[in-house]
């Protein structure tokens, strides 16, 4: 028996739909990550792929095991665990022991997401929670950077990658300093061209600025995130560091160096833009972005650490509910008092 076609369809709002679902969004963001992953493999070899696999496996396994959604495994279908694993992997150092990378994935999902109640409930960006845990647990391993390689070394695995669980990676790994470390401790700036092209040491995904910018523009065009967030962060970092630079050009890095170095581009494009942990209203988004930018400059220039993007974003994540509260747009025709 078929229902006759209704003449009048009664439906609740919203009436305009973009046709964009959570799994669809996640898939597109993962696609937009592919060039960054390829760049990571180009510069850091198979190790990059191994680290990414380990973090993703950790994230997916935790989601499968601990997610309250039943039947088991349904929670994986939206792809958010895979995305978290990939982003976490891309902000880790290339030669990291795989067991640490796996543990980072477990903590990112378990502590960063499920402990808060799953997708959409988390206060902090899960990948950054995993990163912050690893940073606090293994400070030496997380600040040991291997130099970038060339295409001829793609197949060589960085020593230390296969350290047994709970054991140290071998100490003889060739290590180097990141451009920010060199700047902070030796006051030598790496040329901006090298930063943009990826000829510098750093986390897997953060070294090649050009690729990140291109992917960011693609995602902004596809409206996968709010373009205001990266723009606000980058503009405020440029502005704040320009002020310092004008007063003391000898000791402080140039705004161009500040923008191109470290995890700023990657963080601004892929991590600060997480829709769950950033404000909703445009005014709040600007506050959020400028806050991240100001914290990055503060930590980089006056903090004890060379890089501060991770803590800057986490701190502003924590402030997001408050920002949402004060930046809620007023209803049309309402007075000042009614927010």
């Amino acid at each position: 028996m078929t229902q006759p076609e209704p003449h009048l369809l009664l439906r609740a709002a919203p009436f305009l739909r973009r046709g964009l679902t959570t799994p669809g969004l996640m898939t597109e963001v993962i696609l937009a990550l592919v060039p960054v992953i390829l760049a990571a493999v180009y510069f850091f070899g198979v190790s990059a792929l191994l680290v990414l696999t380990a973090t993703t496996l950790g994230a997916v396994a935790t989601e499968w095991l601990l997610s309250p959604v039943r039947p088991r495994g349904v929670a994986l279908r939206d792809g958010s665990a895979i995305l978290t694993g990939l982003i976490l992997g891309l902000c880790l150092p290339p030669g990291l022991a795989l067991w640490m990378a796996f543990l980072g994935g477990v903590v990112a999902i378990g502590l960063g997401k499920l402990a808060f109640g799953g997708l959409g409930q988390n206060l902090f960006n899960p990948a950054l929670v995993g990163r912050a845990f690893l940073q606090a647990a293994f400070p030496t391993a997380l600040t040991t950077w291997v130099p970038e390689g060339t295409i001829t070394e793609v197949l060589s695995v960085r020593s230390g990658t296969f350290a047994a669980p709970f054991m140290q990676s071998s100490v003889d790994a060739v290590s180097t300093a990141t451009p920010l470390g060199v700047m902070k401790f030796e006051n030598v700036a790496t040329p901006v061209a090298d930063l943009l092209l990826g000829n510098s040491a750093g986390s897997l995904g953060e070294t090649c600025g050009v690729v990140i910018i291109v992917c960011g523009v693609f995602m902004a065009w596809r409206r996968l995130f709010d373009w205001r967030i990266p723009v606000a962060i980058l503009a405020s970092v440029a502005a704040f560091s320009a002020v310092v630079w004008v007063f003391d050009p000898q000791a402080s890095p140039s705004p161009a160096f500040m923008l191109g170095s470290g995890g700023l581009l990657f963080g601004a494009v892929y991590m600060a833009t997480d829709p769950v942990t950033s404000p909703i209203a445009p005014r709040g988004v600007w506050i959020f972005g400028i806050g991240v930018g100001a914290l990055v400059v503060l930590i980089r220039l006056w903090g004890g650490l060379p890089e501060g993007v991770m803590y800057a974003i986490l701190l502003m994540n924590a402030a997001t509910p408050l920002i949402d509260r004060i930046s809620q747009p007023r209803g049309f025709g309402r007075g000042r008092a009614a927010a």
């Binding site: 606090a136 647990a137 293994f138 350290a163």
Partner: peptide
């Protein structure tokens, strides 16, 4: 610290989870 009552459990190469002996 990879030890219990000061007795090392995993040998020299253990990578301690520094965060565990810190307040967090």
């Amino acid at each position: 610290s990879g030890s219990l009552f000061g007795v090392s459990l995993f040998g020299e190469n253990f990578e301690p989870w520094v965060i565990m002996v810190l307040p967090p």
